[in-house]
Nucleic acid binder design. Structure first.
Lengths: 196, 196
DNA sequence: ACCTGAACACCGTTCAAGT
DNA sequence: ACCTGAACACCGTTCAAGT
């Protein structure tokens, strides 16, 4: 069989969702495609590069173009929720995305869109990048935690139904702390940070 | 040779700092101690448990008891910087600590101390935990990024000396956004969050 | 351009057996 | 209590060779 890059990414997404990140090996992906492991290295220079492509694919599937009429803070909140939903939609999605981001590949779309939203509030590029990274680190960390505990509960016997909304609540709380911190710099009279 | 748990942790810290997280394998640690790999399983149930002990050891080495006379926000900032310094003091320290925290083990000391500082500002336990996690996720994410890029630069030929302080600057900025967000809830008149 | 086959240098973990 | 020896079931990556 002869495959293209995107066919391999699609099968990798399947392996991730069905068997988890621990089982997402080059050998496993190759086997499910009926290929030798070495064949994957025709399409990707390394496993890291393949994982980056898988992470980007997850985020693209869960992302729609921005309407563009909202205020900067509503956009930051909306982008963060979209990111969270995209990662929660696949098994180990958050851990994969966080891992890929940790080794400095992929996941550039979300950070650029977050930074653009902050910049539209009137902040300079440097501040906007730093603020966007603060939001992004929170989102990755929080959703990784959520997903770890969700999956731990789903393995065990006890149903965590009464706690169902606690993830979203604490996500919104942490996110609002950061957004409020940004907004405060906007309101501060005589601040040097906001543009003209 | 006959070793105790702490001897193995100490050697693992050495392997981490000298060879990096990728080379921190059970077989490597065992070999450096002159043991069979299987011997380690007398002291630790799994590699994850050993890594958790290594992460806790790094944090203990970089942590001193709090003086206890500072304001809540100064304590949050001081604890965050202490945590950052502790992780930066060892090769791949941030990635290790973040990984251990991601699979739900160890690293409880820092989150408890952060939550205690927020609680002393007058917030309830639930808010304090959520605020502490927000700080912690930011710290782990930011310092992992810093360390990845520092090490990437140290491998390459170009010295990043002029950029030396940019990590600390953006760390302080992101941290202050979150602390300001917490403080704002304290100042808000008629808020239900702060305690009597 | 895309893949096979075979090899290299590794992994984490288990378990009977030794002292 | 602590360790050995041997095995099981895997890894990522390289590379000459095939079509």
């Amino acid at each position: 069989m002869r495959y293209r890059r995107e066919d391999i990414v699609e099968r990798a997404v399947g392996v991730l969702d069905e068997h988890g990140l621990a089982d997402l090996s080059m050998r496993r992906i190759a086997a499910e495609l009926g290929l030798q492991p070495s064949a994957l290295y025709h399409h990707f220079a390394s496993k890291q590069e393949l994982l980056a492509a898988v992470a980007d694919e997850l985020l693209e599937r869960g992302t729609r173009p921005e309407a563009g009429v909202d205020s900067w803070d509503a956009r930051v909140v909306a982008l963060s929720h979209e990111l969270r939903d995209a990662m929660l939609a696949y098994r180990d999605g958050a851990e994969l995305v966080a891992t890929v981001h940790a080794f400095g590949l992929g996941v550039n779309g979300p950070s650029r869109r977050l930074a653009a939203a902050v910049r539209d509030a009137g902040f300079d590029a440097e501040f906007s990048r730093a603020a966007a990274m603060t939001v992004l680190h929170f989102v990755f960390g929080h959703v990784s935690d959520e997903q770890t505990h969700l999956q731990a509960n789903s393995v065990g016997a006890i149903d965590a139904a009464p706690d169902d909304r606690s993830g979203t609540d604490s996500f919104d709380l942490g996110l609002s702390l950061i957004v409020d911190g940004i907004r405060q710099r906007l309101a501060a009279a005589g601040s040097v940070r906001p543009r003209g």
